[in-house]
């Protein structure tokens, strides 16, 4: 019994090592030079076509906006799964948390003071990264993650569960609806004014803010569910 297990383990290790060597060999020894038509197309005239200074923002908000739509759908589905397929939903009576025990449980004074100082700056840099996403490195996803960090630091200071996650989930669904409708109307159906210089900028800022708020609400729902429901 153990002999066969050992042999199977050795076969697995050999398979992984052999696969790595084959892929590395193929990767290091390919000689053909492939053209980069997508790279040339996306970087040739993106400022005039999309109004974004940042080529990455131009790609994920205008050229390849389908990616963003399905990424937003994917995040929303995972949030719905985290909320609904949870053991703690049906067995909530076992999961009552004691408010007095949680309140200020093993929190150091230094952390509380420092987080209180840092907190507004974290929110500020998150909003800055979101709004300047199309002219500088940044965008909705990164800024949303920074905003969610602000909520996580709030948990360090005040570890009580006073957020209504259902409201956040509803907000996220509404944001997803507007994330879908905005590019469909603006990019696919071309409902644009004649001079698109200003409207392109407005579209970029609007989409980045919507994506940032959606990622923020999704990540904070996942964090609070894991801390207060799954982790007990």
């Amino acid at each position: 019994m153990t002999e066969t297990h050992k042999i199977i383990d050795i076969v697995r290790i050999l398979f992984a090592v052999l696969g790595a060597f084959v892929v590395l060999f193929l990767f290091l020894n390919h000689a053909e030079q492939i053209d980069t038509p997508l790279f040339d197309y996306f970087t040739s005239d993106f400022i005039a076509e999309t109004g974004a200074q940042n080529s990455v923002a131009a790609i994920y908000l205008n050229y390849r906006v389908f990616d963003t739509l399905f990424e937003a759908l994917m995040l929303m589905v995972s949030v719905m799964e985290v909320i609904n397929v949870s053991w703690a939903n049906k067995h909530a009576e076992q999961y009552r948390y004691e408010e007095d025990e949680l309140n200020r449980k093993n929190n150091s004074e230094i952390v509380i003071r420092m987080v209180g100082i840092i907190y507004p700056f974290v929110i500020l840099i998150g909003l800055y990264v979101i709004i300047n996403g199309h002219v500088s490195p940044g965008g909705g996803f990164q800024g949303g993650a920074i905003l969610a960090t602000a909520l996580i630091t709030r948990y360090l200071v005040y570890p009580n569960f006073d957020l209504d996650l259902h409201v956040l989930e509803k907000i996220e669904k509404l944001l997803f609806l507007s994330i879908v409708t905005t590019p469909v109307l603006y990019v696919f159906m071309q409902l644009q004014p004649a001079n698109t210089d200003l409207s392109n900028q407005i579209y970029m800022i609007l989409m980045n803010s919507l994506i940032g708020l959606k990622v923020f609400s999704g990540l904070s729902i996942i964090f609070y569910r894991f801390v207060f429901y799954e982790g007990r």
């Binding site: 990455v56 994920y60 995972s78 799964e81 894991f226």
Partner: peptide, 19 residues
């Protein structure tokens, strides 16, 4: 810029899959 734009979406999807 194409791989960066693809990976921005892939990172968020990775968070969802892990959750």
């Amino acid at each position: 810029p194409v791989p960066s734009a693809l990976m921005i979406t892939a990172i968020v999807i990775g968070i969802g899959v892990t959750a």
